[in-house]
Write a protein that binds this DNA or RNA. Structure first.
Ligand SMILES: [Mn+2]
Ligand SMILES: [Mn+2]
Ligand SMILES: [Zn+2]
Ligand SMILES: [Zn+2]
Lengths: 142, 142
DNA sequence: ATAGGAATGATTATCATTATCGTATATGTT
DNA sequence: AACATATACGATAATGATAATCATTCCTAT
């Protein structure tokens, strides 16, 4: 757990919709949420914000460095709290559950490979799409 | 170079639009093409096909295993000829040029990481977004 | 050459996301 | 606390990529 984020420090006015969205990521049960996920969760808890605002806020939070955006194969973006530590993802094909991992070997190999070809890495995304072999897969939905 | 692909063998009727699209991938100068790229290239060479057909054919080719689809950060899908050998990509942020690489260590590490967590890898995508440090970057456009 | 099913292409629909714009609100100042 | 004003909100329209429709055209087997 890290210290609560203050929107002010991020250069963002502290508004109700922003606080609600931020709260979802800080205290919600899911780390990785799409705009639609956020919108529905807020509606579900009575806190209604406009869908346009959700999209706007997510993008603002991303630009402010509060959130990180991912593209997990498919059309919609997924966001998660930026805890400062880069990691990659395993996405379950059956239930969409997301598990995180970090592998120093993979990371350094990437840098090496890029360097050998005359590139300096700016960013990268590594997503593993897999099936649960263990029976912990509750099946369906993130 | 591999032997020319016969649509018949892929269970696909041999039609003009399909042959034109296939030809672009087999004899064109770009390995990685979006639907729009394909559409514009065909229009440019006088071979006009409908945009709907382009999308349909690309999806069919993907399902038939002739093409592989990638999602290089951003909204549009990119396709390339399936030459049977898996590889990952470095995408230049400045010119969108795509370079391919394969690293056995990274590949096996992925499998190991997934296995340790009870997953069996079905697929994965690893894209490195980087800047050319060498001056070979002609800047802009795939 | 013919027939019948599949493919094409113009168009419309869909889905995620962004842009508009009039109204509401946060925050610094009286 | 009431104000002023820049900003943010939210309903809705617009956009861009891709999928679905459907009447017409084209392969391919007879
Ligand atoms: Mn994560
Ligand atoms: Mn490739
Ligand atoms: Zn990584
Ligand atoms: Zn790989």
């Amino acid at each position: 757990m890290s210290q609560p984020i203050h929107l002010k420090n991020a250069g963002l006015k502290s508004t109700l919709p922003r606080l609600k969205v931020l709260n979802l990521f800080e205290n919600g049960d899911e780390r990785h949420l799409s705009a639609e996920d956020v919108y529905k969760k807020l509606l579900g808890s009575g806190d209604d914000v406009g869908l346009a605002t959700v999209y706007r806020v997510l993008t603002q939070f991303e630009q402010a460095g509060l959130l990180v955006r991912h593209h997990f194969e498919g059309d919609k973006s997924v966001f998660e709290l930026n805890q400062g530590k880069h990691h990659d993802h395993i996405v379950c094909i059956q239930c969409d559950r997301v598990e995180e991992f970090y592998d120093a070997t993979i990371e350094s190999r990437q840098r090496k490979i890029a360097a050998e070809r005359g590139f300096s890495v700016q960013d990268h995304s590594l997503n593993i799409y897999a099936n649960c072999t263990k029976l912990k897969c509750p099946n369906k939905r993130i």
